[in-house]
Amino acid sequence: MTMKKVFSRPASLSKTPFHYCPGCDHGVIHRLVAEAIDELEVADRTIGVAPVGCSVFAYDYFNFDFNQAPHGRAPAVATGIKRTRPESIVFTYQGDGDLAAIGTAEIIHAANRGENMTVVFVNNAIYGMTGGQMAPTSLIGMKTQTSPYGRDAATAGHPIHMSEMIATLESPVYVTRVTINNVANLMKAKKAILNAFKLQKEGKGFAFVEVVAICPTNWGKKPADAHKWLTENMLPVFPLGTFKDTHGVEKAA
């Protein structure tokens, strides 16, 4: 009997083992990016931009060219790369501290200029690498290292909704929020990431995929429990859905 391969590591993902904590969503999201690059057959002209945060070493995990950007500046760095090499497929991979706090100006303006690039935004409502501090996306009442009594809206404001904000701009062509809390949603996330790269390949413009994710270590939960917590607590605050799809890429699929 012959055996057919159903699932294996995508070619664009390097063989380097991830440094992420057990159960961390970054690994799956990295894989989805690599699968999209492979499916679109653009690996030989893809340039990634790694952020500062847990995914600072993202460049180790892909088999294509990479820049490691200063904290929050990935969209500006990506702008420089894309303008220099318009034939490249350029993407940034950023967390919520990087994109929604220190890099708010860079992401908003790259989106507003309609840079023909793809942004993968991983929102797990906490700073991972520095040890679990409050993020702009932390939930009200969420206890973190820097909000030990729970996030208080009166002093720390409310969770920031980046997808909704970016969708108010005219230039972006695709803004969507997905999650990978179960396999059905994971397959939708895979499709969204593929759409976002496909739009860039076609020269359509700025595409933004927010992935609502877990941080088991800093949430203090087992991975499966963290996904349950995400479903019950994060999704009501960060509802899944597509906020902008100028070219109807989801319907066409």
Binding site: I47, V49, N67, A69, P70, R73, A76, V77, A78, T79, G80, I81, K82, R83, T84, R85, S88, A105, E106, I108, H109, R113
Partner: peptide, 23 residues
């Protein structure tokens, strides 16, 4: 290519990106 950036911080990082891509 001329880009008026949103800040000096963004501008120098665009330079970093373009320079790293060989410009």
């Amino acid at each position: 290519v001329f880009v008026q950036a949103e800040s000096e911080v963004a501008a120098i990082n665009m330079v970093y990106g373009a320079g790293s891509a060989g410009a």
